[in-house]
């Protein structure tokens, strides 16, 4: 009788041991796999914003006036134009989507691929007509590009 009880206890102990091992292994594996995947997919696109100046904008130009709601909904754009990632460079004459103009870098911020898509759909070029809108905020004009790593 006693040996039968011992046998039962032994079996229960074995179950509990296997269960605990599997439980811990699953937690550790899933956790490390997730963060390893995050690190491996580290190269995120970069949003680069430029300011342009001159006789802007020309007649019939498409202008998007940025609102507080836009900044709220696009934190990367906010941080590049007026936030932590604002880091204006020197003015120089260079190529822009609107021709050769005086321009300077204003700021850049990392974005996810989905954010990049959302920014392009909201303020990016008209892909079919190859027409880039002017982005206006506080009297200054901007355009942006997103660089894929």
């Amino acid at each position: 009788m006693k040996s039968k009880n011992n046998k039962h206890l032994l079996i229960m102990g074995a179950f509990a041991f296997i269960g605990v091992i599997l439980f811990v292994a699953t937690v550790v594996l899933t956790y490390t796999a997730f963060f390893a995947w995050l690190e491996a997919s580290g190269g995120s696109p970069i949003l680069d914003v430029w300011e342009i100046r001159g006789e802007l904008p020309p007649e019939n130009a498409s202008i998007i006036h940025l609102t507080e709601k836009d900044f709220e909904q696009h934190p990367a754009l906010d941080s590049a134009i007026r936030g932590d990632n604002l880091d204006p460079g020197a003015w120089y004459l260079g190529d822009t989507p609107y021709g050769v103009l005086d321009k300077r870098t204003i700021g850049s911020a990392p974005v996810t691929y989905l954010e990049r898509e959302v920014l392009i759909e909201s303020f990016g070029p008209d892909v079919e007509a190859r027409n880039q809108p002017y982005i206006e905020y506080d009297g200054a004009y901007y355009y942006f590009l997103t660089l894929i790593p």
């Binding site: 998007i64 898509e117 759909e121 008209d126 892909v127 027409n131 809108p133």
Partner: peptide, 11 residues
């Protein structure tokens, strides 16, 4: 709700 115009990006 803050819709963008259809013409930007892919129409």
């Amino acid at each position: 709700r803050n819709p963008s115009a259809w013409e930007w990006g892919y129409r």
